[in-house]
Write a protein that binds this DNA or RNA. Sequence first.
DNA 1: AAGTCGGGGCT
DNA 2: AGCCCAGACTT
Length: 326
Amino acid sequence: MKDQIITKKILNWYDLNKRSLPWRKNVSQSKKHYYTLVSEFMLQQTQVVTVIPYFNRFINKIPNLKKLSTIQDRELIKLWEGLGYYSRVRNLKKTAKIIISKYDGKIPNNYEDLISLPGIGNYTANAILAIAFNKSYIPLDGNIERVLKRYLYLKKDKEIKKDNLIQKKSIFGISSRSSDYAQALMELGAMICKPKNPECSGCPIPKSCKSYKKKDFNLAKITKKNKEKYFILKVYKKNQKYLLVKNTKFNFLKNLAIFPMEELYKPKNFNENLNFKMSNMNMNIKIQYLKNAKRFPSSYWFDKRKLDNYMLPTFTKKVVKYLEKN
DNA sequence: AAGTCGGGGCT
DNA sequence: AGCCCAGACTT
């Protein structure tokens, strides 16, 4: 099938089937740019349905780039509470400050400047150029990667490498409606060409899809393995309060509130109380109930009755929940 | 090129 | 109980 015909079919499908999303609202140009920046940071490795309420709260509190560049960290991080990958929000503010100071408050409209900004990599730079500036770029996210692999039936190790996929994405052609086209391709991956049970009956381009011809929709991928890790978690309780510390010790949940913990390496006879999956690790946790709190740096007593006054990562909240029912 | 970094939705 | 998600950054 000719590139232009594929493009047209996908755009037609998108026009009829696209979801109504808060960052797709018809707004002024400057708002559109800001919405794109914020939504793309939030959407990194995070599903659309999860992002929607966070995006709405964020835009409501921080309606523009200027405000973002001067917002207090405390309030900013609170808006990200529970979303995960907290370095994203710190990078987002850094990027906002740079745009204000170096780019006269305007988001750069070229690849080199964009990718130099903290938190913006190849994907996000392409996404901003396409979605916000309607330039003929196609971002390679997990959705488009999957559509590409299926459409071309890419299975070999060499074929599914990132660099090769970035080359191959040009088969999707270009459109004058670049903003819609980038979103259409992602939408196609999210709604139709799903990881499992793709709904080819609703697909606009099944006839030229190699996986459809072969009736094989399995995806070749590079497997990442999880690591088993072991921690002693220390609980100090005073009245209705728990002792928490600002985490400067572990690389995960950096600078966020956690219970005091120590990691054990290859322990013997480790009977864990709790088990959490976080990022690429499986955390096995043994709880120690202790009486006399020694002096921890940057520690404070967390009052569990006033949860909303704190910014706690989901991990810490889950531990509190566990302690409350045991 | 491989590890690290959250958390939740979906099957 | 795994897999995956509009990836970026470090090593």
